[in-house]
Computed example of a mutant assay.
Amino acid sequence: MDTKRAMEIYNSKDTFAVHLGGQSVWIENVDEANGMATVQVGSNPLDTQTVSCDRLKEEGEA
């Protein structure tokens, strides 16, 4: 996923299915300047990772 799309999802009131390595994640923050996103993995709010936006996949995206 590109950084622009990650920002759209982050700023949206709607919910989108986003995955990182097959796991569901919730985008908590997007660093547009560096193309990075901080995501919550699964339902554990303490399990966060900062990853490159291009590692994120929207459901249905190849």
Rank of each mutant, 00 (worst) to 15 (best):
21 G>V: 00
53 C>F: 05
4 K>M: 06
52 S>A: 15
26 W>S: 12
11 N>K: 15
56 L>T: 04
46 L>K: 11
43 S>Y: 13
33 A>V: 05
17 A>K: 15
14 D>F: 05
3 T>W: 10
15 T>P: 00
41 V>S: 06
57 K>F: 07
53 C>R: 01
31 D>T: 01
31 D>E: 08
9 I>F: 10
42 G>Y: 06
15 T>D: 14
48 T>V: 14
57 K>N: 09
55 R>M: 15
43 S>M: 10
33 A>E: 11
56 L>D: 05
39 V>D: 00
40 Q>E: 05
9 I>G: 13
27 I>L: 11
13 K>G: 14
36 M>G: 00
48 T>N: 07
38 T>V: 08
22 G>F: 02
32 E>R: 10
10 Y>E: 07
45 P>F: 09
36 M>R: 12
41 V>C: 02
23 Q>A: 13
13 K>W: 04
17 A>E: 15
41 V>R: 03
19 H>C: 09
51 V>R: 10
41 V>I: 15
34 N>F: 00
25 V>R: 03
22 G>M: 08
46 L>I: 01
29 N>W: 11
52 S>D: 15
55 R>A: 12
62 A>G: 10
39 V>A: 03
47 D>L: 13
58 E>V: 15
20 L>V: 01
35 G>W: 01
3 T>Y: 08
49 Q>I: 01
27 I>Y: 08
45 P>A: 10
15 T>C: 07
25 V>T: 03
12 S>V: 02
32 E>N: 11
43 S>N: 13
40 Q>G: 07
34 N>R: 08
6 A>K: 07
57 K>G: 06
62 A>C: 04
21 G>K: 05
41 V>Q: 02
18 V>Q: 04
51 V>M: 05
21 G>T: 00
32 E>S: 11
32 E>H: 01
55 R>H: 13
3 T>G: 05
45 P>M: 05
17 A>M: 01
40 Q>D: 00
62 A>S: 13
18 V>T: 11
12 S>M: 02
19 H>N: 08
6 A>H: 13
16 F>D: 14
61 E>H: 08
62 A>V: 11
12 S>W: 02
32 E>M: 09
34 N>T: 04
16 F>I: 13
1 M>H: 09
31 D>C: 00
44 N>F: 05
